[in-house]
Amino acid sequence: MLVISWWLHLKMLAVSAFEGVFQVIWPLFFATTAFLVYRQADDPQVMVYAGLGAAVMGIWSVIATTASGVLQRERWLGTLELLVASPTRFALILVPITTAMATLGLYSLGSTLLWGWLLFDISVPVADPFLFVVSVVASILSIALIGFLLSVSVVRYRTAWALGNLLEYPGWLLCGFLVPLTLFPTWAAWISYVLPPTWGMEAIRLSASGDSPWAQVLVCLGLGIVYGAVGALLSETVLRSARRHATLSLT
């Protein structure tokens, strides 16, 4: 059920020109700016660092900007009550949707790597393609679970999309996509450590360079499951409240 649901939502999202084009182009603007800044350092290794980080940050963008509006979107489509009324647990309905959204980030990952290679001559070496793919998949899954938590956390706010948009920059900053964590104050680095993409990004870098990423992959998935569990508990509470107050279909 999870896989079929994920695949159906992925197909629906993939036919949206708005979602597809925008999820590719928007992160590219920031990736290009970052490349132009790092290019001045005149260090090929730094460009590889920036190229890989910029490629992955699109996955975070997709979730930050769209997951907060998942339930509102279903509400507008008139399908929220049907989803809630179905015998399947609500969490199991939402997770495939946010996973499909995070998967769309692969567009951004591929296009940013290509963009960096074509325009900035950044060639990202991938020493172990299998572990690289494992690291990317783990990152997508854990980011999707954050998106799930986000989607149920903000369901009571009609302007949740604004909050979602707000999370894009902090995620780019704190997850180590473009800036090493060592530059942050200690308190900020601790916030980074409880964010699964930080570990996912680290795993991707390690696998690309040929080191073992398994520890980082496990931490990334473990943290993602924690976020997912909190989201599942919260979704039940939110649903009970919405049913009690008859607010499920209010837009």
């Binding site: 790092y38 350092a41 920059y169 902090p170 900053l173 473009l178 800036v179 530059l183």
Partner: peptide, 18 residues
Amino acid sequence: APIFQILLFAYIGRSAGI
């Protein structure tokens, strides 16, 4: 949001040393 945009690029600048 603009504050985070400023922080993001200021830290990228620090990281690049420019």
